[in-house]
Computed example of a mutant assay.
Amino acid sequence: MMRLPVRLYAFLVLTAAIVWCFSGCSGGDQKPDQQKGHKLAKKASSTDNFLSYTDALTKLPLSKFDSLGIVPTNKAFAGKLPISIYKGEAIGRDSIIVYPYKNSEVANIKAAIRLLVAQSITDSLTIGDFTRYFGDIKKEKPLIGNTETPLPVEITVDANTALKLTFNSNKKLALAHVTMVEVLKYR
């Protein structure tokens, strides 16, 4: 009779030790995954904010396509995106550099806004994001052969506005990372 409580006691101690050992290991792997998920959600929101900002710029009339005309739009997105208007001096790599200009070289383009995308946003911003948001890429017949740097592509937003996207080289166009966006106004 004496052996039964000792065996039961040994069994309970061994079971408790095993449960204690594995309980410490079960939650350890969840924190990095949660952090990765948080970072992906943060990147997705900056991509969505950039697309919304670009959309707001496409809706501006031609008369607002200058440094003063885009100030209200920039203020509306200042808390969501790192926006800096180019004024001739160097700006950090973590800012979206906005450069509005009037065009006198090409007759049909009256004005444009050039957006140099911040590196932190470029890493998650693809051509596919733009085609899902704005529509299909304008198909053009290439006038020259393959180049080392891919030629920009264009998306027609409406009869008066188009987007020209410059991107990094990638085998699949939809996965190429966008480095510069030009909002072009024709009228």
Rank of each mutant, 00 (worst) to 15 (best):
1 M>W: 13
4 L>H: 01
4 L>F: 09
11 F>D: 07
23 S>Y: 06
25 C>H: 10
29 D>Q: 10
35 Q>L: 15
36 K>P: 00
38 H>P: 01
38 H>R: 15
39 K>T: 13
39 K>V: 10
43 K>G: 02
50 F>Q: 01
52 S>Y: 01
53 Y>D: 01
61 P>W: 01
62 L>G: 07
64 K>L: 11
64 K>T: 04
64 K>N: 09
65 F>Q: 05
67 S>A: 11
69 G>A: 01
73 T>H: 02
75 K>G: 01
76 A>P: 12
77 F>E: 00
80 K>M: 14
81 L>E: 11
92 G>R: 10
93 R>N: 13
101 Y>S: 08
103 N>F: 03
105 E>R: 15
107 A>N: 11
108 N>Y: 08
110 K>Y: 04
113 I>R: 02
119 Q>A: 14
119 Q>C: 07
122 T>D: 06
126 T>L: 03
127 I>P: 07
127 I>G: 08
132 R>K: 15
133 Y>K: 15
136 D>Y: 09
136 D>Q: 14
138 K>L: 12
139 K>F: 05
140 E>R: 10
144 I>M: 06
145 G>W: 03
145 G>D: 02
146 N>R: 00
153 V>K: 01
153 V>G: 03
155 I>W: 06
158 D>G: 07
158 D>L: 04
163 L>T: 01
163 L>M: 06
166 T>E: 10
166 T>P: 04
168 N>M: 09
174 A>Y: 08
174 A>R: 10
179 T>P: 06
181 V>G: 08
181 V>E: 03
183 V>W: 01
183 V>S: 03
187 R>I: 12
